[in-house]
Amino acid sequence: MLKDFVEYIAKGLVDEPEQVQVTEQRHGERVNLHLQVASGDMGKVIGKNGRIAHALRNLIKVAAMQEGVRVNLEIG
């Protein structure tokens, strides 16, 4: 779910959705998500002053709470 969630949003934000890649590593209750996008799309997932990245992290917490895990999102 976490991975699908990030992937769905990221694909909706970028110019090259086919380049969106999300990898997920689970260590018990902790999940590390790594979001990668085309280099030209970095700004679309980070935003001015990291505003979009901040919003993404806020939303991912909802997904994490639904799953009962702690999540860390790395971008780039």
Binding site: L13, I52, A55, K61, M65
Partner: peptide, 24 residues
């Protein structure tokens, strides 16, 4: 859960959805 503390999650939700809409 979707509202968050002082509506912060809701604000993020609305912000991201509008970005996606603009893109689409």
């Amino acid at each position: 859960l979707l509202i968050g503390r002082r509506g912060e999650t809701l604000a993020s939700f609305q912000y991201v959805i509008n970005l996606m809409l603009a893109r689409k």
